[in-house]
Computed example of a mutant assay.
Amino acid sequence: MDTLARAFSAPAFRELGYWLFRYRRTWRGSIVISVGNPLLFLTALGLGLGKLVDHGNSAYLQGHSYLTFILPGILIAGVMQTAFLEASGPVMQGALPRGSYRAAASTPLEPAGILYGHLMYWTLRAAQNAVLFTCVSMLFGTVDPARAPLLVLVAILVAVAFASPAAAWAVTVTRPSQINAMFRFVVLPLYMFSGTFFPIEQLPDWLRRLAWLTPLWHGVDLGRTVALGTATTSGVLVHLAYLAVMVAAGLYVARRTYRRRLYV
């Protein structure tokens, strides 16, 4: 309860206000990138390649069209990618000697308030992207309006599950090349091999077992089963537990790395 109270304390909302003020100047470009890119994937793969896949009547799709199959995966993977980018580069910049984190830490704001305020901003950004993408997807007729709110909630949970550990790590980083390497060698492979574009059952056995351990697969599978109405109680509980542990562990480490870095 103490952690929850600190997360929604007045200092945290002051930090949130700072990031929202900055976002007023960049929201147009960020929406184009965060929503436009996934929609391009959706159009090219779902409406283009999807026709060829649907013509083959793949048993892996379990009677669903390819567009309906990949839509939740693209949403979840897109939110994951945005969460990483928002919680890595800005955090690293903020923790530099002349960064915004340093300025905030010189006031009565504590590192925990800075972390939680920025986390609320990431959550709002994820919610914005998820709602916009899901609304457009409903126009395609690929998401049941009754299940759309659940898909949005899954996307927000995945965003927080990735943003928390990303921030815990990024606050210790001093070079952009480290973030670029993490994006290139970790985030992009997750994007490609966690069931976003094709069922992981088509992967070799050893790679499939590896995919089961990745956090993005849990998010994609949870979002997909919720969107398609094929979710099971046991499956949902396993996915939620995995992502919840990731959030808790990320925040636990982040509180310590933020304090260690900002009070140097």
Rank of each mutant, 00 (worst) to 15 (best):
F197M: 05
W217N: 04
P97A: 09
F140Q: 09
V236M: 08
P149A: 03
T233Q: 01
A105Q: 13
T196V: 15
R260M: 13
T257E: 04
V152I: 15
G229T: 08
L4C: 01
L42T: 12
A103V: 14
N180C: 04
A7L: 14
R256S: 14
I74P: 06
T82L: 07
A83W: 08
Y116Q: 01
A163K: 04
L75K: 09
W122G: 00
T107R: 12
N180S: 14
A77D: 03
T196M: 03
A105Y: 12
L222Y: 07
A77N: 07
Y242I: 13
F41G: 00
A5T: 13
Q93P: 00
A59T: 13
K51F: 08
I76N: 05
L16Y: 06
P145T: 11
A170D: 03
Q178W: 10
R14Q: 11
L40G: 01
A112N: 09
A103K: 15
F13H: 05
S234F: 07
T225D: 03
A146K: 13
D205E: 12
M80Y: 11
A104P: 08
G219K: 08
G229V: 05
Y23P: 00
V32I: 15
T26R: 11
T232D: 02
L151P: 03
A254C: 11
Y263Q: 15
A244L: 15
G94V: 06
N129C: 11
F133N: 01
T43W: 14
L237I: 09
K51T: 11
F84T: 10
R147M: 10
I76R: 05
H118A: 06
Y258T: 06
G219P: 07
T82A: 07
E15Q: 12
F140Y: 15
R261C: 07
V53F: 11
Y101D: 01
V160Y: 02
W27L: 11
V154Q: 05
Q62G: 01
A10C: 02
V238I: 14
V91W: 05
G29C: 04
W217A: 01
G17V: 07
T142M: 05
V173I: 13
A112V: 12
L75T: 04
V79S: 07
V136G: 05
W27E: 00
T134W: 08
L42R: 06
L109F: 10
V35G: 02
A163M: 06
L132E: 00
G223N: 05
T257R: 13
A227N: 05
V245E: 00
L132M: 14
I114Y: 09
G141F: 13
A249L: 15
G48A: 11
E201R: 07
P189V: 06
V186S: 10
T26P: 00
V186K: 03
W122M: 08
I114A: 07
R24V: 05
S106F: 13
P145L: 10
Y101R: 03
S194T: 13
Y242N: 01
S137Q: 03
I33K: 01
L188W: 12
V264G: 12
T123M: 09
Y121C: 00
M92Q: 13
A87G: 08
T232W: 02
G117H: 07
L52G: 15
L49N: 02
R255L: 14
A7M: 15
N37L: 14
A59S: 14
Y66D: 01
A127W: 11
M92K: 14
A166C: 11
H218C: 00
